[in-house]
């Protein structure tokens, strides 16, 4: 298994990856509560970014409505927990199922009717907005007044019910992120992954090679929406409150896509690097602003916007491609390194 996963990856890249993972695993032992909270946010965005990247980065379908799948995952498991006492891990398959079903409807409508590009993006926004307004009136889960999970001060961790201290949540989201990374790694180097990339690069040319583009675009939205739902489960149980206005708002969807765009769309490390960069820098900025006593409400987001602006203007492919060349772990060196002539 490990051998297969690491095939073709240069040794020092493996070492770097192992070091990063080790650092993340031991982090809670050294980090204070604040730093742990920041790390949780980073990993949350790394996870959702990875899920979004399957659609946009791999298959080239721009979704601006991923908050929909987060929200559906969150509300499903929260409702099952609050109303029926069903734990999040049992609720999760249901959450994934509902998310995937919604993804299937959106994908079917869009791809069957040939809605693509910016039009597709607008369609995804429209569905997230539908959900936002719908949940505003859905009183079974609190409507616009919000939906709350019971909160108490936990002295021990109850992993089965996801009730506990920040360190437990940290390991949960770390595990999710690691699984998402491995899954995306496998997908990228698979038949589906190559078909997606072909569709992303040139859909008509892909069809001329026998690729049923409708089917593979459907796979992309199904996998991506299914992967996003667990982030919602995490969100619900970590923050313990859900408001339609916030959960499904378009800014939530945009936050999800910032990491992978800044890190590098279509790369495996892009969503992770991007999440670290944007959340990390935003926190540093926040600290500095508080230090100087100037802390207006929008400052952090202006910074997000500026980061995005600078990255799309200067590094159209994100931070990861040049960074990987710098670290000498990019695909070119990997290829020339280990392939023999036949």
């Amino acid at each position: 298994m490990m051998k297969r996963l690491l095939h073709g990856v240069p040794l020092h890249a493996t070492v770097l990856l192992a070091l990063l993972l080790a650092a993340l695993v031991v982090a809670p032992a050294f980090a204070n509560d604040y730093l742990l909270t920041v790390l949780i946010v980073i990993l949350y965005f790394a996870y959702t970014g990875q899920a979004w990247n399957v659609m946009m980065g791999f298959a080239g379908q721009l979704s601006l409505g991923h908050a929909l799948y987060v929200g559906l995952g969150a509300y499903t498991t929260a409702a099952l927990y609050v109303h029926f006492g069903i734990g999040p891990w049992i609720g999760m398959p249901m959450a994934i199922l509902i998310s995937v079903a919604c993804g299937a409807i959106i994908g079917f409508l869009a791809f069957r009717f040939g809605v693509g590009g910016v039009y597709f993006a607008i369609l995804t926004i429209a569905f997230a907005e539908f959900a936002r307004i719908g949940f505003d009136h859905f009183s079974w889960v609190g409507g616009s007044a919000g939906f709350f999970l019971p909160v108490a001060n936990y002295s021990h961790d109850d992993l089965m019910n996801l009730r506990g201290r920040p360190a437990m949540f940290y390991y949960v989201i770390l595990a999710l992120t690691a699984v998402a990374f491995l899954l995306c790694h496998a997908l990228m180097r698979s038949r589906v992954g190559y078909f997606w990339q072909a569709i992303r690069e040139d859909e008509e040319a892909a069809r001329s090679l026998g690729i049923d583009t409708f089917r593979y675009k459907m796979y992309a939205i199904l996998i991506s929406s299914g992967m996003t739902a667990p982030a919602g489960v995490f969100f619900a149980f970590y923050y313990n409150n859900l408001f339609p206005e916030q959960t499904f708002f378009i800014l939530r969807s945009i936050e999800i896509i910032l990491g992978p765009i800044i890190g590098g769309v279509g790369t495996l490390f892009g969503p992770i690097i991007g999440a670290f960069l944007i959340t990390g820098l935003a926190e540093v900025l926040q600290e500095l602003l508080t230090w100087y006593g100037f802390d207006p409400p929008g400052a952090k987001r202006v910074f997000y916007g500026l980061c995005l602006l600078v990255v799309v203007m200067i590094l159209p492919h994100g931070v990861w491609p040049p960074l990987s060349r710098l670290l000498r772990v990019d695909r070119e060196t990997e290829r020339t390194g280990d392939k023999a002539e036949p």
């Binding site: 078909f195 072909a198 690069e201 040319a205 690729i211 279509g266």
Partner: peptide, 27 residues
């Protein structure tokens, strides 16, 4: 295609491999 349309971000062998994957599902 009359105006060639290779997949620009993929390597030469990946371009051809995408075609080959139709009959050879194994990478």
């Amino acid at each position: 295609f009359q105006l060639v349309r290779p997949f620009p971000a993929l390597t030469v062998e990946e371009n051809v491999m995408v075609g080959a994957l139709l009959r050879h599902p194994n990478l």
